[in-house]
Structures are given as C-alpha cells and as structure tokens.
Nucleic acid binder design. Sequence first.
DNA 1: CATCGAGGCGCG
DNA 2: AAAGCGCGCCTCGATG
Length: 619
Amino acid sequence: MVYILVSAPPTARGRVVLWQVDATGRVFDSHTVPAAEFPDAVDALTDDTVRWVWDDTAHWYPPLLERGIRVQRCHDLRLSHAILRHSAWTAGSPLAHAPHSAWDDPVPERAPTANTLFDDLDDTDGWGGGAGAERGSGVGGPDAGPGDSGLPSNAQSAAQSAAQGAAGRQIGAYVTRVANKRQPARDPHGEDESLREFRRQRAALAASEEPGRLGLLVAVESAGALIAAEMRFHGIPWRADLHDHILTEALGERPRFGGRPVKMEALVQEIRRAVGNPTFNPDSQPDLLRALRRAGLSVTSTSKWELRGVDHPVVAPLLAYKKMSRLYTANGWAWLDTWVRDGRFHPEYVVGGVVTGRWAAKGGGALQLPGTVRGAVVADPGWTLVVADAAQLEPRILSALSGDLRMAEAGRGQDLYQALVDQGVVDTRDHAKVGILGALYGSTTGQSAALMPRLTRAYPAAIQFVAEAARVGEKGGVVTTWLGRSSPRPDDQWWVDAVLDTDGGVTGPQRERAMQQARSWGRFTRNFVCQGSAAEWAMCWMAGLRTRLAEMGSPEARPHLVYFLHDEVMVHTPVGCAEEVVAAVHAAAADAGRLLFGGFPVEFPVQAMVAGDYAAAKG
DNA sequence: CATCGAGGCGCG
DNA sequence: AAAGCGCGCCTCGATG
C-alpha cells in the first residue's frame, strides 16, 4: 500500500504538496505541483496500490471528478478523526486526549484548492513558492450548485492529456522517482498539519484494542466519502416533465399567480363546510385545532394519527388535504425548480452526519423522497436502474452482534419476520415486526411491549444484548458499534438530572422527569449499537459494490451508484450491464457479512430489482 | 427584518 | 393498529 498525502499548506503558497508516506506517516518523498496541475498529478499517480490521504474528500475529490478522474481509495482525515477521537478502543491514545482542534470542527468552506484551515502555521521557507504559484484550478468546487455538473463526464482520458504537456513530463519523472525511493526523506516544509494528523491517527489505530475492526471502519467511512462525492457529481436521473405530471395529477394545475392548486382549494372548501367555519386557515395549526374542537372533535392535536381515529366528516378531506399540502410544499414545483437541473438531482450527502454513523443529507431532503414522486426518477434511454435493499437489516445485525444463533437461524431465509412465525415465536408476521422493532427501539408500552416476554424466551442472547446497551446508557455510559464507533456522552444537564434521580431525597415529578430522561438515553444507546453497526454493514456493502461496478461496462458507459438510503442503493446502469449489476449487489452483500462477522452464520439477503423507474422498482 | 422552537410529516 | 430509534425540511407564530 502506497499512501500519498495531499495538502495545501500556506507555505506552499497555493500550490499542492504530495507526500509519499508509509503506513506510519514517515515521509519518503514529496513533490509540489501548481494547483492547476493537481488533477493531472493524481491521474498520473493513482493506481490500485495508492491510498490518497487528505483532510476532506468533499474538498479534493470534486475537481478530480470534473476531470473524469476517479480514485480507488482514500483516507479522509476529518471523518477518521471523528471516529478515532471518540472510540472507546482508542481512548488511551494521544489523539483522544488532544485539546480541541480544527480537526474537530465541521468541514470548512474553502476555495477549491486553497487551504485556509491551518493558516497559523509558520511560513518559514519558500520552497515551492514563487512566480509559478497559482490559486484555483478553474474547475467547479465542492460548493458548486446542483446542476453544475451534468451527465457523467467521460469526455477525455485525463491520462492522455497528462502524458502530453509539461505537467505530464514532470509527473512522469515523479512517478519514476517515487517508485525508486526506498529511504525516508526530509520534510522540506517542516511539519505539515495533515501529515501530523495522519501520524496521530495511524498511531492511535496501531495501538488500539481492535486495530482490524477500527481500521476497517476508517476505510469504509473514507470509501463512503468517495461514493458520496461521486453520487453528488452524477446525480439522480430525474425527469422534471414526469414530476410535473405527477403533481398536476395529484394537486391540479400549478397555480400561476399564487394561491393553492385547484384540487387543494376544493378540499379547503369541503373542510370548511364540514366544520361549519367558512374562513379558517387549515395551514395554521392553532386555527385548525380551534375549528376542530368547535366542531365537536375531542382532539388535542392536528396530527394525522390522532385524526385517523376520529369519526367525523371532516377527517377524510382533512387527511387528504394534509397529504397534498405536504407534497406541494416539500416536493412540489418549487422543489423541482430549485433542485433539478438538466435531468439530475444533485443532493449533498453528509457522511457520518448522524451520530450513529448513518449518512445525513442536506438540500432537497434527499433522504426523505416521498413515494409519490419516485416515479420521476427514470433511467436515461438505453440505461436502467438497479434498486436493491437489505431485508430486515437491523435484526440480522443484532443476531450477529449478540451471537444469537436461533435468531440468526430465523434470518437464514428472505423474510426474518415470517421466520419468527414459523419458529412459533409469534402468531403473525405483523406481530413479529412490531415486536422486533420494539426491542430495537426500547418500546415500553402497547402491543410491542406485550410481545417482549415471548421474544426474550426465544432469543435470550439478542434481547439481553439490547437490554444491556440500554442499561449502560441509563447510567450515562458509552456503547460501541461492531467496528468501533462509540456513542456520545450525555451533556452536563443530563448528569445534573441524573443526580436528582439517584439522590434519595428527591421525589415527585422532579424525580420522575429525571428517571424519564435516563430511560430516554438508554433507548438511544440501545438503538445506537444496532443502527450504527447496520450502517457499517451498509458501508461495507456499498464500498464492495462500488469496486465491482468500476470493472463493468466501458469508461463511456459504466454503471454507477446514484443513490443511497441507509439500507438501500440505486445504480444507474446501461441496460446491458443490469444483470451483472444485480449479481454484484448480491455478491457485495455476502462479502460485507463475511467481512464483518466472519464465519458467524448470519445472512444478509438483498432484494434487487431492475426497473426503468424508482417507483416501479419499489412496487 | 432575521432567527428559532414547536408541531407536523416524509424517509429508513 | 401503534408511540419507541435516527434524521431534514416545511409552515406558523413568537421573539429579538
């Protein structure tokens, strides 16, 4: 494995420094290129032995993608820092004990190749500076808006262009030099902050209780960062004309001069008639609640789950209106105008954006696309979609985490919930689902709580495992996922209340609230382990899939990931590759299970569908 | 005028 | 039929 660390220290004056280092961060060589030549340098150097090390994938990778350059692996220093700094398995490391630094902050805003992060470093030598220094590469940066990048750009081989001009000759010489270097080299810039951070991280990993698992976590988190950048670059194929058609069908014509779409307006009139109030505004919750109560409904909120249980003529039109209103405001024409450009939706994925390790997204609500509009996600002509999701991922993960063989056995087939019925544990599939979800979330009331004794009897190891995670959380402790991501500690106020709970002198509502809060944190840690470990499986799955896809098709028409939703992936593929993609999806899932849990007999079946559009794939 | 929390609802 | 985990984003209405 060759590590090449990329940084743009202020001493390099807008140029980019490439360091060849070993796994401990020892420098063997370094080379400085003008920022504009950075993509050529990467293209010339990258191969299947190189792992690129950089502070933020979201900063360095998009300019490469714009040039049609793809890297195979990276080590994202900021994402890895967050994991290693808080993991219980690296708690003794200098990294964990260091004071707060810029590495603990969110990704900073930067111009495409300038580094303003560590500009307090000494500017002691002028090596690499001078007239040749250039700022900015002229390519779109990570903050380019949706639609700045269109169809997959495979316009030209960047390798070819690199092999031509002066930059190419320079890089070519560098490659030869790198290949021949066997002796550590001096660091001509003094200490580079990215380099130092890389060394701290590698040291923390090496000294960790579980270097294998934690190393895998850091690797797949970084692979996720590459995938997130690639998916944003390619975008989800989105047919604005079909979206418009869906909206018009559901809501009526788009209003031209303000006001509601006609079908919504008609419902408003119906709702007003049903409650005998000709003027109230159903979009205002206080207004609506008042109107409902005056009409004789004994509701305490306007939420749909409460309304659903009420027998009154206003309920049906009101629920219909709420659904339409949601579609109109969240994914209506305004959404379409804002987020879809040139047939693509380019959401920004936030890797590690959720405490558990799941991804978040910002801009356009990419992870909450309602079923209603999924019909607008349509493959290009000659292309199709492969949509795959992991069936009952979290319970299967739980069976492996806890080593519960009987639960793993229930997961041997396609449908774990049905298997619970077949094993005689519960009487219906629905009960199985409610019961399992209740165990994962820590339900204490209702139907799912009533199922707990049966589940405990059938799967003692699994249920004890989540119960223990909850107990740890209730005491304010830390739990850790399978690969080593640890839960955050409760904040100061939590501990203040926790004292009230254990202090024998405190009684009544105050104590009640304290206990309630402790249980709430327990439910969080209970779920953290399962949700977080499931996210790790999903990342292994997707990283493996990405590698397989890279071998398929041709550079001009290669299947590529376009969407990821916790336990579901979407690949946009030439029709001719679809079956190969389906096979890869299954193979990658099997690989992920083995990678995480070795020989433990847990299975992770995925359901993969080939379809021209997303709605059909889910239907 | 901008910002924030609450209520609500979409997704897993 | 049901209330327990994790999110982002919309509107309204209160507050600065």
